[in-house]
């Protein structure tokens, strides 16, 4: 949003983003939903506020989670060496060999770090800067808290937002496979590996241009699932069945995790 505001000459001086995350029942399992509140600071007209609200909905991560922008190719590779593409159809799959732990409610609060914005000698923005993100949620018995940094800055010390979200997708996939595949005594979950390759063509210009215009840009991703065993001991249908339960994969396929949205000038 900082980049879209800069490109549009909007006097955005600061921004804070709050999400509430909660479990949501969906067909075949438990998904998740979010309630978003964006607080803009600066001399911002109603038309500019609406434009920035659109940018929030159509940023690359927002598009992936709510607009079905990800075009996913899946393949499975067994430790025995065989590789095959995973069919996109999901009829007559076996029942998964376990259950996923439902997400617990929590909050995410992001603050923009103004002093990480980078400009050239003429004052033209070169990098939008970084955000500090606080995450608070419950374990089974008590509250847990973490801080992460993400954004766009030149030293390469923090990850950009889109790869951060895709890392979450890879992690979610690994969690889902380790929970639902028939591992038993013969297969070790530590032999699982999930690899995601992303097409990053277009970069920030495409991301910010499409966000400003409210335009969905499809992005290709290939996900390789390396699993223990061989095609007989770990059938591809068991992998498909597990993937069909993965909460972030389902958010990418179905969209709809945004339960409520407010963008206010405060």
């Amino acid at each position: 949003m900082v980049g879209v505001a800069y490109r549009g000459g909007i006097g955005l001086e600061d921004i804070e983003v709050d999400f509430e995350l909660e479990p949501v029942e969906r067909a075949g399992g438990i998904g998740f939903g979010v309630r978003e509140k964006v607080t803009l600071k600066g001399n911002i007209s109603e038309a500019e506020r609406v434009r920035l609200q659109r940018a929030s909905r159509y940023c690359p991560v927002g598009q992936a989670l709510t607009r079905g922008s990800m075009l996913i190719e899946d393949e499975v590779q067994w430790r025995s060496g065989e590789v095959t593409a995973i069919p996109s159809t999901s009829d007559n799959l076996p029942v998964p060999n376990g259950t996923l732990t439902a997400i617990r409610p929590g909050t995410i609060h992001a603050s923009y770090l103004l002093d990480t914005k980078e400009c050239d000698g003429e004052g033209k923005m070169e990098h939008e800067g970084e955000a500090k993100v606080y995450i608070v949620t419950e374990n089974a018995t008590h509250t847990s808290r973490w801080t992460i940094l993400a954004g766009h800055s030149s030293p390469g010390l923090v990850p950009p937002p889109f790869p951060t979200a895709q890392a979450a997708w890879a992690a979610s996939t690994a969690t889902t496979l380790s929970s639902l595949l028939p591992l038993g005594d013969d297969h070790d979950a530590r032999d699982l590996q999930v690899e995601v390759g992303l097409s990053m063509t277009g970069g920030r210009d495409l991301a910010q241009g499409s966000a400003a215009e409210g335009r969905v840009v499809h992005r290709n991703a290939i996900r390789r699932l390396i699993v223990p065993g061989n095609p007989r001991s770990m059938p591809v249908e068991a992998v498909q069945s597990a993937l069909a339960q993965d909460p972030i994969t389902n958010a990418y396929r179905d969209g709809g995790i945004l339960l409520d949205e407010q963008v206010v000038v405060g």
């Binding site: 940023c59 997400i103 617990r104 949620t137 979450a168 969690t175 909460p247 972030i248």
Partner: peptide
């Protein structure tokens, strides 16, 4: 991490990291 009864969570659940990327 995945919420559980036995150990501390060393990191947020993946869904939270995903939305953190959106928030950033």
């Amino acid at each position: 991490g995945t919420p559980n009864l036995n150990t501390d969570l060393p990191g947020p659940p993946a869904q939270y990291l995903s939305v953190a990327g959106w928030a950033a």
